[in-house]
Design a protein around this nucleic acid. Structure first.
Lengths: 144, 144
DNA sequence: CTAATTGTAACTGCAATTGTTACAATAAGC
DNA sequence: GCTTATTGTAACAATTGCAGTTACAATTAG
C-alpha cells in the first residue's frame, strides 16, 4: 500500500512557510486553501511537525512559522515527523509463520537485514533533499 | 502505511519451493501450513506469481513448482509480481492542490523526481538479492 | 474582554488487507 | 470415463488506516 499523503501535505505546508518572510505566520485555513483540504487535516499534521520541533504554532493571531532554516530540514525529518511508518517497519512481514517448519522458523530473520537495507536506501535519498531544495524546484517550473 | 505482507508471504512460499527437489510440487494447503494462514490466501498469491512467470501450477495432483532457478529470481521480481504498489506509486501525493497558488501549482512536479529516486533506491536493494540468497540465509540461523 | 485561532474528540465514508466459506473447473491416475 | 485431489474464483466479514467533516473547549494577541 501507498505511503500516506500526510508526507506530501507536510512538505507542501512547510514549503508555504519557507516561501514566506520568515517572521510571517500562516493559519491552517490558508494552508488548507493551498493544499485543497480541510483545515483540521492541516492542523493534525502541524501538530506532528510541532512535536518534531520543525514549526512553532501561535494560537490566537497568526498561526505557524518555521523554527529552522529550510536548508536544515531534510525530507527525512518530515517523513519521520509525520510517522508515515514506524521506525524500521516499512515492510509488513507476516507475523506467525509455523516454527515447526525450517523455512517458517527462519524466514523473518532471513528477510530482516535485506528489508532493513532497502528501507534505509529509501530514507537515505530523502535525507539528501532539504526543504530549501524543494523550494528551489518550486520556483523553477519545468522548462521542457 | 506498511507494504503488504503479500510480499513476505510470497518470498516465504518461493523459499519453500526453492528448498525442495526442483521436480517436486507443493500444494497450497501445505504452504499455508508453513506460512500459518488460509490456503486461499496462498492461492491468490500463487496466481500473481504465476502471472509473472515465476511458478507453474498443476491443478489436480501436486500443486506448484518453480519455473526459474532460485538464483535468477530477485526479490524485486517478487515485489513487482505481488503488486504491492503500482509502478512508481510508492508515495501517495495529495491529488488536487490549489493551482491558484504558486506552491500548489508546482508541488507535485517538485516532489516527483525526489520521490522517484527514493523509490528506485529501495527497489535497487531488492533487485540485488536473489531467492537463492534468501535460502542460504534460511539455512544459516543467525550465529549472533 | 473580545475575537481569531488552535487542539482535539467524535464521527463518517472509503478502500485495502487478511481471513473465511463455498463451489465450479481442471486434470492426474487408475 | 470416473474418481478424487487440487486449483481458481467469487462472495463475504472483520479489521485497519486514511481523509474529510463538524463541533467545541482552550488559548492568546491586541
Amino acid at each position: 500500500m501507498q505511503i500516506s499523503s500526510r508526507f506530501s501535505v507536510a512538505v507542501h505546508v512547510l514549503s508555504l512557510l519557507a516561501c514566506q518572510d520568515p517572521a510571517a505566520l500562516l493559519t491552517s485555513d490558508r494552508m488548507a486553501g493551498s493544499v485543497n483540504t480541510n483545515p483540521v487535516v492541516i492542523r493534525r499534521i502541524l501538530g506532528q511537525l510541532k512535536k518534531a520541533g520543525l514549526v512553532e504554532v501561535r494560537a490566537a493571531a497568526g498561526g505557524t512559522f518555521l523554527r529552522l532554516a529550510p536548508a536544515s530540514i531534510s525530507l527525512l525529518d518530515v517523513y519521520r515527523a509525520v510517522e508515515v511508518v514506524a521506525e524500521g517497519k516499512l515492510f509488513h512481514v507476516h507475523a506467525s509463520p509455523n516454527v515447526r517448519c525450517a523455512v517458517g522458523r527462519n524466514i523473518q530473520a532471513a528477510l530482516d537485514a535485506t528489508l532493513a537495507r532497502a528501507q534505509t536506501a529509501l530514507e537515505r535519498e530523502l535525507a539528501r533533499v532539504t526543504l530549501a531544495q524543494v523550494v528551489v524546484d518550486l520556483a523553477l517550473p519545468v522548462a521542457t
